Amino acid sequence: MKISLKTGIALSLVPQIVLVKLIGNQTQFIEHYYSNGLYPFVSKLFRTLFGWIPFSLGDILYFLLILLALGYVCKNRRPIWKNKLKFCRNILMVLSIAYFTFHVMWGFNYYREPVAQKLGLKETNDYQELIDFTKLLIAKTNRLQLEITKDSTQKVIIPYSQNEIFEKSLEGYYKISRKHGFPQYEKPSTKTSLFSTGLSYMGYAGYLNPFTNEAQVNGRLPNFRFPVVAAHEMGHQLGYSAENETNFIGYLVTAENEDLYFQYAASAYALGYCLSDIRRGDQEIFDTLFGELNQGVLLNFQEMRDFWTSFENPLEPVFKAIFSSFLKANNQSKGIQSYNAVVSLLVAYHKQYPL
């Protein structure tokens, strides 16, 4: 029986999924031939092509594709209803093409060598080590807040524009690449999303468009959080897919920046994750440590809480559940909770490189 090209592409989705999982088990193969082989070429090519454009081409592409899909369904609703099997075949064909393109252009990075292994870090979940590290972070965050504001009761206001923050983030990447030999960042393509309001309602601080390799940052974020998120999304561009690893890279790049505002943003960012882990373990210890924070630091944390609270809506948990399922399907078993796994990386790193 002769199978049409469209049917063949649609049917290829299942063997593609199987093949990706099989190849994904070969971490060294992925690291050598994809993450350090094909992907850097693809990534640099698309960052060169689109990085100079001041707006997000990927956002426009997504918007147009959604409009085309809705227009097609509305225009062809009767033929679709009469030929449901054919319509399902066409959907599978599109999914098959998207699945293939996604993995070639970025997705195989989910199966690469962990950054802890690359840096020789030994991660642990020792609660006392976490407490000790958090105390050091509190001291550093308080010191930076006071050094910047000269008043422990005043919150830090980062005075840079978003484009200036993008530029300054490159300095941190340069410094880290000299220190550890990676990650090296060239040909920047980092932009604020055209749909930042929508991202805020979905509960997202940013994302990488895997089809244009543009790092998208939620332009409505307070500047207090903007530097770390920008560095996080740039880390995705360099082929680090796991959210705990890009959280770590975002922190590291921002913390190593010579700018005090960046150092404060990074320190407070890491502190938030550490305090969250401590709170889950022992509320009393959390309350004690939280009480040691300068009032100005607390105001910055409140600034972030107020921001996300202002966008809370009934659909936000749905969007987060979808994203969590996406992460689980791509080798991140903890789903959206993998963001919090950055804590063990932070503790392990600063055992080797003390604060």
Score class of each variant (00 low, 15 high):
residue 1 M to R: 04
residue 5 L to E: 00
residue 7 T to M: 09
residue 9 I to N: 00
residue 13 L to G: 01
residue 16 Q to F: 11
residue 16 Q to S: 01
residue 20 V to S: 02
residue 22 L to P: 03
residue 24 G to Q: 12
residue 25 N to C: 01
residue 25 N to Q: 09
residue 25 N to F: 08
residue 34 Y to T: 02
residue 35 S to Q: 09
residue 36 N to F: 07
residue 38 L to D: 10
residue 38 L to K: 08
residue 38 L to N: 11
residue 40 P to R: 03
residue 41 F to P: 00
residue 45 L to P: 07
residue 46 F to W: 09
residue 46 F to Q: 06
residue 47 R to P: 00
residue 51 G to Q: 13
residue 60 I to G: 06
residue 61 L to V: 11
residue 64 L to K: 07
residue 71 G to E: 02
residue 72 Y to C: 02
residue 73 V to K: 00
residue 75 K to S: 07
residue 76 N to V: 01
residue 76 N to G: 01
residue 77 R to D: 02
residue 78 R to F: 11
residue 78 R to I: 05
residue 79 P to Q: 04
residue 80 I to E: 00
residue 84 K to W: 11
residue 87 F to S: 04
residue 88 C to W: 10
residue 92 L to S: 02
residue 99 Y to R: 01
residue 100 F to G: 03
residue 101 T to V: 14
residue 103 H to T: 08
residue 104 V to D: 00
residue 105 M to D: 03
residue 108 F to T: 02
residue 108 F to K: 03
residue 108 F to A: 05
residue 116 A to I: 01
residue 117 Q to Y: 13
residue 120 G to N: 05
residue 122 K to N: 11
residue 122 K to W: 00
residue 128 Q to K: 13
residue 129 E to T: 04
residue 132 D to R: 12
residue 133 F to G: 01
residue 143 R to N: 04
residue 143 R to P: 00
residue 145 Q to V: 01
residue 146 L to I: 11
residue 150 K to H: 13
residue 164 E to G: 05
residue 165 I to M: 14
residue 166 F to I: 06
residue 169 S to V: 15
residue 169 S to T: 15
residue 171 E to V: 08
residue 174 Y to Q: 14
residue 176 I to W: 07
residue 180 H to L: 14
residue 183 P to M: 12
residue 184 Q to Y: 15
residue 186 E to P: 00
residue 187 K to Q: 05
residue 188 P to E: 03
residue 188 P to A: 06
residue 192 T to N: 12
residue 196 S to E: 12
residue 198 G to Q: 04
residue 204 Y to N: 07
residue 204 Y to E: 08
residue 206 G to D: 14
residue 206 G to P: 07
residue 208 L to K: 06
residue 214 E to Y: 05
residue 216 Q to A: 02
residue 218 N to T: 05
residue 219 G to A: 10
residue 225 R to K: 09
residue 229 V to D: 00
residue 230 A to V: 14
residue 232 H to W: 07
residue 232 H to P: 03
residue 238 L to R: 10
residue 243 E to Q: 10
residue 243 E to A: 05
residue 253 V to W: 02
residue 254 T to M: 09
residue 255 A to L: 10
residue 264 Y to F: 15
residue 265 A to R: 13
residue 271 L to V: 11
residue 275 L to M: 13
residue 276 S to P: 03
residue 280 R to C: 03
residue 285 I to H: 09
residue 285 I to G: 04
residue 285 I to A: 15
residue 285 I to C: 11
residue 288 T to D: 08
residue 288 T to I: 15
residue 288 T to C: 07
residue 289 L to H: 06
residue 290 F to Q: 08
residue 293 L to F: 15
residue 299 L to M: 14
residue 299 L to T: 01
residue 305 R to V: 08
residue 308 W to R: 03
residue 308 W to A: 00
residue 310 S to F: 02
residue 312 E to Y: 12
residue 312 E to W: 09
residue 312 E to P: 08
residue 314 P to D: 07
residue 318 V to R: 05
residue 319 F to G: 02
residue 320 K to I: 14
residue 324 S to F: 10
residue 324 S to Q: 06
residue 331 N to K: 12
residue 332 Q to F: 15
residue 338 S to C: 08
residue 339 Y to G: 07
residue 351 K to M: 13
